[in-house]
Design a protein around this nucleic acid. Sequence first.
DNA 1: TTAAAGTACTTTGTAAATCAAAGTTACTCT
DNA 2: AGAGTAACTTTGATTTACAAAGTACTTTAA
Lengths: 99, 99
Amino acid sequence: MNNPIGNLNKVFDSRIRLGVMSILMVNEESSFNDLKQMLELTDGNLASHLNTLEENGYLKVHKGFVGRKTNTTYSITKAGEKAFKGHLAALENMIRSIE
Amino acid sequence: MNNPIGNLNKVFDSRIRLGVMSILMVNEESSFNDLKQMLELTDGNLASHLNTLEENGYLKVHKGFVGRKTNTTYSITKAGEKAFKGHLAALENMIRSIE
DNA sequence: TTAAAGTACTTTGTAAATCAAAGTTACTCT
DNA sequence: AGAGTAACTTTGATTTACAAAGTACTTTAA
């Protein structure tokens, strides 16, 4: 494949999904609200991107509590880690050809 | 700005525009047909992305000839280089926080 | 105890982006 | 004349993105 963009993952074309993944790579898990604040998104927008990520098997969801309040946290699956690393490798590959 | 995606450039959310820019960073200039083949795109699709890039002042167009045939080449402007480097820096920044 | 607020969504509706395919203009080559 | 090439533009369909509002439930404050 000579095509420099052929190995990029379409799921990660979205800046928001890219942001979610990069946060979850550092944090191991993050709550809905933390993600919302870090990425400065509306509820609906975040929820739909999380949903896309989950549908692709890249995220897992854990519904729990903090005290008495519901608290949903998200973390990356094995497949998600693999896919994300693959995407980053493709990106770096593309960029490396520049310098 | 704590938001990890806040410094990404929206123009470069598109994999195709990312690909065009990365090719033109290496090649100094490239013809319509070369870009089309490298990125495996239809005429219309490529033309519209080139147009977006040009509208943003990131690309300049040179209409010339190869022998008697028309030959349009594209190259990156100063602003384009700056914007693209800024985007890459933002990307690398985001990625660096991971490792 | 009632009202306000928080959590995590889903639904709705709109606007924007993406793309292939076909059409167009202006050649050139045979 | 007829086919072919280059570089588009136009059209139309599909997908994506997003804000805003609505939902269901719980909790905290007055």
